[in-house]
Simulated assay, not measured.
Amino acid sequence: MKTPLTVLVCALTLTACADHAARARLGIQDSTLLRSGVGASQDEAAGAANPQWVQTYAIVHNGASALASLQARLDRMPPQPNGYFRAKAQCWINAAQQTRQAGDRWGFAEEAIGEAAVITMGLESGKPVSAANPALRTVSTVRPDLWQIVNTIKSDPAVASCHEAQPPLACAEVELMQGGHDAWMRSFSNAEKRLPDIQDNLRKTAERVLQCKREVATSAAAPSAKSPRTVTLRADALFRFNGSNDVAMLPAGRRALDAVARGLKSDAAPGGLTITGYSDRLGDTARNQSLSLQRAETVARYLRARGVTSPIATRGLASANQLVECRQTRRDDLVRCLAPNRRVEIELAVAAP
């Protein structure tokens, strides 16, 4: 009896034919992930460590000590108003620990420790931390459809104020990265084993975001002891383009804030003020986050200097809650179109009559 040719081909390769089906289920586009043995690439493009990688992660010479230190620093932090980053740091620590316990010495543990360290240091210093997921040497992209779901959820403005939805979202991202490392290691079955937890975390996130939206809608419809009033000021009228500090404030911006200050002093807001800065979507995410927060803080200082005594909270939401969508191809036209998104909002919570 003749052996089918496909069986012979599978028997003669180091990668089983079943792996092709697993790769297809994972949505992996990189065909090199099924190459092994004779002819398999061992160069930098195939994932070999380059000098830059070695220089970046050589400091993680004692993974156990680094993980213990990061865990202790994270545990000492007070509760964060935004649970996304704290949860993400914890999930990166967990991923590094699991990788080390599995005896995997291919570099993902060091990369996970590095990601946990960047987030932890950002939380400690109060500096903006990017929510973007980096391209790591030992991680391939798996399940692009799940990544699309992740990005859709992250782009929903409701997520920023729905704190209970943030931890499962953060961990789903790290788990997808960890599954991508399994695929990079040609362990497609292990990558698939992670999918139920990832999908469950994304389901929890979506359900909690919807619940938060329902609560907001219910709250808006119900009578409230406080009714917010919002003053919106265009950033282009307050500051020079891309400016955010006192030096960058325009004369027209000072006059507008003087008028706001006079109104606040004559009609105090016992519930306090929330000043929120926004940027447009152009440029680096971390830079936009910092820029939007600086604008809010500059406005708060200006109002304080003009005699406003109500409690003031400031925040920067970067390009969240965009007012206009623009599709211009010329940059000058696009910048002009996006102007309404660059703004500062002053929300007053005042007692209802």
Rank of each mutant, 00 (worst) to 15 (best):
A102K: 06
Y84E: 08
P78A: 11
A95Q: 06
A66C: 09
G63R: 10
C91P: 02
A102I: 02
Q97W: 06
S130K: 05
P128I: 09
P81C: 13
P81H: 12
Q98H: 07
V60T: 07
N62T: 03
A66I: 09
A95N: 07
L70D: 01
I93K: 02
I59E: 07
T120N: 04
Q101G: 14
G114N: 12
K88W: 02
N82K: 09
G114W: 00
M77S: 06
E124G: 09
L74W: 00
A112K: 03
R100M: 15
G107R: 05
I59A: 15
T120S: 08
K127M: 14
A64N: 09
A109W: 08
L67V: 06
G83M: 07
A68F: 00
I119T: 00
E124S: 08
A89Y: 00
K127Y: 07
N94H: 05
R73A: 14
F85R: 03
A72S: 15
I113G: 01
C91V: 02
V60Y: 12
L67A: 05
R73M: 11
Q97D: 10
R105W: 00
Q71E: 14
N94P: 02
A96S: 15
Q71L: 14
G103K: 05
A66M: 09
T120V: 13
E124L: 14
E111K: 05
A64D: 09
I93Q: 10
A131W: 03
Q71M: 12
G114D: 13
C91H: 08
L74E: 05
A58W: 03
N82V: 15
A72V: 09
Q101R: 13
H61I: 05
S65N: 05
T56E: 14
A112P: 04
L123S: 06
L123N: 04
M121N: 15
S130Q: 05
Q71I: 09
A109I: 10
A131N: 09
S65M: 08
A68I: 02
E111C: 10
K88I: 03
V118T: 13
F108S: 06
N62Y: 00
I119M: 01
A95Y: 06
A58T: 12
A116S: 12
E110C: 11
Q98S: 14
E110F: 06
A117H: 00
A58S: 14
N62I: 01
H61Y: 08
E110M: 10
I59T: 14
Q80A: 11
A109M: 13
G103F: 07
A64V: 12
